[in-house]
Design a protein around this nucleic acid. Structure first.
Lengths: 211, 211
DNA sequence: GGGTATTAAACAAACGTTTAATTAATTTTG
DNA sequence: CAAAATTAATTAAACGTTTGTTTAATACCC
């Protein structure tokens, strides 16, 4: 068990997460973080050892783990395979859009990060989550509800890719639909709903035999 | 008309593009670029004015412009609306995957870039390209081939999002399908084909009335 | 020889981290 | 329970690098 974090440590982590998501890891200095958090610069090295390790801490705290939820889904007899996939879709929409700042960081760092611990962590997450989606689709195929020739990684690419690209273009989406006057939470609700309907439509069409 | 670039300028631009796509803009120093290109550091300021302006030059050279191609598509009477959308899909796959390094940079900089010229440039590109997709879909609707209630920006999010997420996870996709022994060009051909089939399936299902 | 290209060196500013000193909190002890 | 001892938290300053850019001198070319 990891030792729990102090209030100031959490403050630094949250502040750093915000700044990293806006200016990137290399574009944010430890002085930026400390000043924005109202904490002395030296405290970052004191608490986390280094700026790099602070970043690792952010990843360990915020990485999406769908293990238990998918396990629950798999053994839930009240849902048919397609409904289970629908649940998975909503799980990803919620998981990504409720962690907007972290996922913006993740999107960048997947490309430019060189930190071995973070690479390992992200790779593990991808592999695990990919296996769960595999299990869910195989289940639907075994029950005869899903088509046989399905490109499973491409299904994941469309799921995560659509949500991520929506996340990056949230402002664009807002002005396109003239939703500037909506409150933040309400706009987020609208986007989640639109994404949900859209991706479920896709999944139904690609996975099942009929529309 | 912009003055044409010298050999060394192009060398610097290409080297910088590669490094930016691997380590990010802020993670790459002008000394990194100059050394990798075998050119004196001062030449970057001499040629481009600053590191920032060098980045702008990269964006101006590599930004995807589908204007003419879509204009041709719109007035091509030999293709029905769905075939035109298929052409658009392949246009995006080709446009993104044949500019892998630049699009990795674009993915990052959409999130963390603060440079006003680049923000403007990217916004214009998005708006323009979005309008063209609009035109193509509206055409299909007018001809009665496409459904009426289509969330057009979501169609774009799925198109660009799926391709981008595939680009970021190319290595993952390679090992998943055990394609490590394939030559680079061959692997790229496979991915493009898979993407093409996959996204066209989605577009057909979402846009038209029947599958 | 006049304009362009190229260089090594120097520039100040910003970087992540460490240090040494001080304050605050906690524990030990009488 | 208070005083002393010990540990933890916090600070401003300094450290050595690295950063992007500029300079002033030199080489090159028509």
């Amino acid at each position: 068990m990891k030792p729990s974090l102090s209030i100031k440590q959490v403050q630094l982590l949250d502040t750093a997460e915000t700044l990293f998501s806006q200016k990137g890891f290399d574009g944010t200095s430890v002085r930026d973080i400390a000043e924005a958090a109202g904490i002395n610069t030296a405290m970052i090295s004191y608490y986390f050892g280094s700026k790099e390790k602070l970043m690792e801490e952010i990843f360990e705290r915020k990485s999406l783990n769908i293990k238990e939820k998918v396990a629950d889904l798999l053994k839930d007899d009240s849902l048919d395979p397609l409904e289970k996939m629908y649940s998975l879709v909503d799980m990803y929409i919620e998981g990504i859009l409720s962690r907007k700042t972290f996922h913006r960081i993740l999107l960048c760092e997947q490309i430019i990060n060189q930190n071995p611990s973070i690479i390992t962590l992200v790779d593990k997450m991808k592999t695990k989550n990919s296996e769960y989606i595999n299990d869910l689709i195989r289940l639907g195929q075994k029950k005869g509800m899903f088509k046989k020739n399905i490109d499973i990684p491409m299904m994941t690419n469309t799921l995560v890719g659509t949500i991520s690209h929506t996340l990056v273009n949230l402002d664009f989406y807002k002005s396109y639909h003239h939703l500037e006057n909506l409150k933040d939470e309400e706009f987020e609700r609208v986007v989640k709903k639109k994404l949900s309907v859209h991706i479920k439509n896709i999944y139904k069409a690609i996975l099942t035999h009929e529309s």
